[in-house]
């Protein structure tokens, strides 16, 4: 591949954002592609907004993707997907979980969560992007492990046209990365992610 593939993964600290990034970079390396990513550690502990940048390709220089440049956004939480939507290029693909996690600024408004879901989608449509909304939490529970929501989204990502890694390559990397005792549930979550997108 000659073009650099740019993407971001976002969500709330603790949702398994670095795990997705890890699986992608492991698969890319196996394929002989260069990868360059950027993470923020330290203050972004559990519960904070977390984003990682990823570039896959041959000539890689800076580790971050500025606004309007990414092919794909993978978002584990709707508010966070919206927050980082600006990084997608026009008609880029936003794969986002429909999960909404309670942010501190909603503490005072008992109905904030009820009102938010509709409004988030409405706000996403202000961006010229292709939105793929996935019920990741339900699918993860179906897979047998609620913590595999990230892997459901990874399954969906594998179906994106022009994404430089195949289903099989990601599956192999996944097996290598997740804890041995949870491989089965993770593989199932991955398949459910693929299936959902195919059925879209």
């Amino acid at each position: 591949m000659s073009k650099t593939y740019k993407m971001i993964v976002c969500g709330v600290g603790g949702q398994g954002i670095l795990t997705i990034t890890d699986i992608i970079v492991i698969a890319a390396r196996k394929k002989g592609l260069h990868v360059l990513g950027s993470e923020v550690h330290g203050m972004a502990q559990k519960g904070g907004s977390v984003v990682t940048n990823l570039k896959i390709g041959e000539k890689l220089h800076s580790p971050t993707n500025p606004i309007g440049t990414c092919e794909v956004l993978v978002g584990l939480e709707q508010n966070e997907s919206l927050r980082y939507m600006k990084f997608l290029k026009p008609r880029g693909i936003a794969i986002t979980s429909n999960t909404v996690l309670f942010p501190i600024s909603w503490k005072k408004d008992k109905k904030a969560a009820d009102n938010a879901k509709e409004k988030i989608e409405e706000n996403i449509t202000k961006f010229d992007v292709k939105l793929v909304m996935i019920k990741a939490e339900n699918l993860a529970i179906e897979a047998g492990l609620a913590l595999t929501q990230n892997i459901v989204l990874l399954g969906a990502l594998s179906q994106v046209e022009e994404f430089p890694l195949t289903e099989d390559e990601l599956r192999d990397a996944l097996k290598q990365r997740v804890p041995a005792k949870y491989v089965e549930q993770n593989l199932k979550a991955f398949e459910l992610g693929i299936k959902t997108v195919k059925n879209l």
Partner: peptide, 11 residues
């Protein structure tokens, strides 16, 4: 959308 996006600082 800026005003809509909830504040999510590390806690």
């Amino acid at each position: 959308i800026t005003d809509f996006i909830p504040f999510r600082p590390p806690l």
